[in-house]
């Protein structure tokens, strides 16, 4: 602690130099990258589902929250057994695996129950069903997990590196690296594998892809599962980074990620990643250089501005075969 009132009321060590302009920028850049990475992971789920069945899955934010909870429960259980202290990285990996698997399973279930029966109905029906599912899942989490913030285990990840006056925490590094890995992995899956090809084919034309023996139901389930898995990963990162999770935590990041997906061009994977990073950056730089009070306003001004000049988003909505 810097202040020691008991020794002398006005004793202060000499102040360190103010963060220089460049270092301030770098610090805010890292902050923005962390936030933007999490938004990008969530945005992918919106965009992939939209690409395949043209549905805005409003329950997607809830997969993110559920992932955060499953991660918290797994880590809590493992730390109760004492493994967390001895093998933190292993425990964290287990949390990611469980949460992503659980949410993938949950999303497939949600799709079967709430969206599949409505696939031939109007889009509005499916949209309303999605809203209902969102409320149902959010309240379900409230009833089973309580209304309080659930505290995230993981004190051991709280350290940081100091580069001059720029502080980068282990968690920020972990989030940025892991997000990058997941994004690269997704790109390989979608653009380099047969499954990815099937997904892109289904997105382009369901009837035609069915004619060449691609099971569209399977592909739709898979899309939901991948999107929810990525959101679950973001949920764990979010919980670790902010120290707690709560049943309604999916709402605001869900809205931001949806905005990111639209900004990048809904239905476009690369667009969602770029959109997420932009929203995160604009928010942080808006708060860092102008006013933290209006940070959300900056993010949405960018969104409106881009949509005004380019209604299909930065990367465009339907770029032939890159759409999912």
């Amino acid at each position: 602690m810097r202040l020691d009132p008991s020794s002398a009321a006005s004793f202060y060590p000499p102040k360190f130099k103010k963060l220089r302009i460049m270092e301030y920028f770098i610090q805010q850049f890292v902050n923005g990258l962390t936030l933007g990475g999490m938004y990008a992971l969530i945005a992918l789920g919106y965009t992939m589902v939209y690409g395949v069945i043209q549905l805005i899955n409003f329950a997607h934010g809830e997969f993110f929250a559920a992932g955060g909870y499953v991660g918290a429960i797994t880590l809590g259980y493992l730390s109760g057994l004492g493994y967390m202290q001895t093998h933190p990285v292993l425990c964290l990996s287990a949390a990611f695996v469980f949460a992503m698997a659980y949410c993938a399973y949950l999303a497939v279930g949600v799709e079967k129950i709430a969206y599949k029966p409505l696939r031939r109905e109007s889009r509005l029906a499916a949209l309303l069903s999605a809203l209902g599912m969102s409320i149902f899942l959010s309240n379900g989490m409230m009833l089973t997990q309580g209304v309080y913030d659930k505290i995230y285990p993981g004190e051991m990840f709280q350290g940081r590196f100091d580069f001059g006056t720029v502080a980068i925490s282990y968690l920020q590094i972990m989030i940025i690296v892991l997000t990058a890995l997941l994004l690269v992995g997704l790109n390989i899956l979608v653009f380099k594998t047969k499954i990815g090809m099937a997904m892109r084919a289904t997105a382009q034309d369901k009837t035609m892809s069915a004619l060449v023996a691609i099971g569209s139901n399977k592909i739709i389930s898979l899309t939901f599962a991948i999107g929810a898995g990525l959101a679950a990963a973001a949920g764990i990162m979010y919980g670790l980074y902010y120290g707690s999770v709560r049943y309604d935590m999916g709402f605001i990041p869900g809205i931001k990620a949806f905005a990111a997906a639209v900004l990048g061009g809904i239905g476009n994977i690369t667009g969602a990643m770029i959109g997420g990073l932009i929203i995160g950056m604009v928010e942080v730089f808006g708060a860092g250089y102008f006013s933290s009070e209006y940070k959300d306003v900056f993010a949405f001004i960018i969104l409106i501005g881009v949509l005004y000049f380019k209604p299909t988003g930065i990367m465009g909505e339907n770029i032939d075969d890159t759409r999912v």
Binding site: K15, L19, Q28, V284, F285, A287, S292, E293
Partner: peptide
């Protein structure tokens, strides 16, 4: 004197700003 919004979870930007000012 900065304001944040109710329900915000990410305060990294405003805290970086406060850190730059280096108040007691």
């Amino acid at each position: 004197h900065e304001h944040v919004n109710q329900g915000d979870k990410d305060f990294s930007a405003v805290l970086t700003r406060a850190k730059q000012e280096n108040p007691d």
